[in-house]
Amino acid sequence: MDFIQTIILAIVQGVSEFLPISSSAHLILVPKLGDWVDQGLAFDVVLHLGTLSAVIFYYRHSIGEIIVAFFSKNPNADVNAKLGWGVIIATIPVGIAGLLFKGVIEDNLRSPEVIAYATLLFGLLLGLADYLNRKRGAFKADIDWLDMLIIGIFQALALIPGTSRSGITITAALLLGFGYKLALKFSFLLSIPVIVLSSLLIFVDLYQTPEPVNWIFLATGFLTAGIFAYLTLYFFIKSLEKISMLPFVAYRIILAAVLLAFF
């Protein structure tokens, strides 16, 4: 892997991590299309940590409020505390599914064909959720326990490459009756423990199969992924009310068609 590949993969990860287009799919496909050698486990960890730093920095004030409310004397009465519980509860299904099916997914579900069909199917589901959401006159203002669990179950589907973790959790939130603002906020906060857990799993694999480390490439990848992830978060959240999910649904349909045509 050279410096240009490092920059390209970091930008791909930073931009696609929080957009509903599947970062894992793009990180699998870009090296395949470029006929590049595998970037290695250490680089994958660093890119994930870069995007993690971006979402933590973007929501730093909300995270602080959630932590304070979570450990207050009466956390059940506070919306921020419920968000904290929601992040924990909605993470459980994907954590269990990841531990149970990690090997199966890596061995059988990382093909371009699977990515194409998942991209198409869940893209259409996102379009349906967005259409129904825009027909509503009012939205839920709070997340209850059942909502948390349902969104968590949907999130487990993101283990299938091509699904998009942010895409499927936003889809679930929209189907449950949440507006864009709360749907995105919960989805992106939910990414924090998921990125941490996935990075820990990669660390285990990395420990078992040590590989040479190029610290300059790793530092470049971390900074680039973090910067582009933050910019993506900022502009995505600011512009979504105006553009809706339609451009991302269209992109997923086109991407799926290209994949099916070429692979």
Rank of each mutant, 00 (worst) to 15 (best):
F122D: 07
V55E: 01
A257E: 00
L52W: 03
I253A: 06
V249W: 10
G64F: 07
K102C: 00
I150Y: 08
I88Y: 02
V104M: 15
W215K: 14
A25Q: 01
S16T: 15
V114I: 15
F154H: 03
V15D: 11
D205T: 00
I21S: 06
N108T: 10
V204N: 13
I168H: 01
A172Q: 02
I96M: 09
I153C: 14
F71W: 14
S239G: 13
Y180Q: 13
A97H: 00
W36E: 11
K185W: 07
A250I: 15
K181C: 00
L246S: 13
P247C: 03
P112Q: 05
P193D: 09
E65D: 14
W215Q: 14
K242C: 10
V45K: 01
S164W: 06
L49K: 02
V87W: 05
G177C: 04
Y207N: 10
N214G: 03
Y131T: 14
V87G: 04
S111G: 12
I153K: 05
K238E: 13
A229N: 04
T91L: 13
I227N: 07
L125E: 09
A256F: 06
E241F: 06
W85Y: 15
I168D: 01
A172R: 05
L9T: 11
A116P: 03
A156F: 06
S199Y: 06
V213Y: 00
G14C: 02
I4M: 13
G64I: 09
K242I: 14
I150F: 11
I7H: 01
V55S: 00
T171Y: 02
I216C: 02
Q13M: 09
A116Y: 00
I254F: 11
L100G: 01
I192K: 05
A172F: 10
L41Y: 12
L49N: 01
G226C: 03
R60Y: 12
L49D: 02
G179V: 00
Y251R: 08
G84R: 03
P93W: 01
L184A: 11
G14V: 01
D107L: 13
A257F: 11
G64V: 08
A81F: 03
D107C: 05
S187G: 04
A118N: 14
L159G: 03
G103C: 10
A257V: 11
S72A: 07
T91V: 08
G98R: 03
G177Y: 05
Q39I: 13
E65K: 15
A69V: 03
F217C: 04
P112F: 01
F178R: 08
P20K: 04
S244V: 00
I28F: 07
T6C: 15
V194R: 04
N74I: 12
L201I: 08
A69L: 07
P75Q: 01
I67V: 15
V12D: 08
A118P: 06
L184T: 11
V114P: 00
S187R: 04
F217K: 15
G98V: 06
Y230E: 07
A183Q: 05
H26D: 04
L29C: 05
V104D: 12
S62A: 11
N108H: 13
I21R: 02
A81L: 00
A54I: 04
K238H: 12
Y230Q: 10
A10D: 03
L255A: 10
D205Y: 02
V15Q: 11
W36R: 09
A116N: 06
A118H: 10
G14Q: 05
A256P: 02
A219C: 13
V46H: 05
L121C: 12
L246G: 00
R110D: 12
F217P: 00
G137N: 14
V12H: 09
W36L: 10
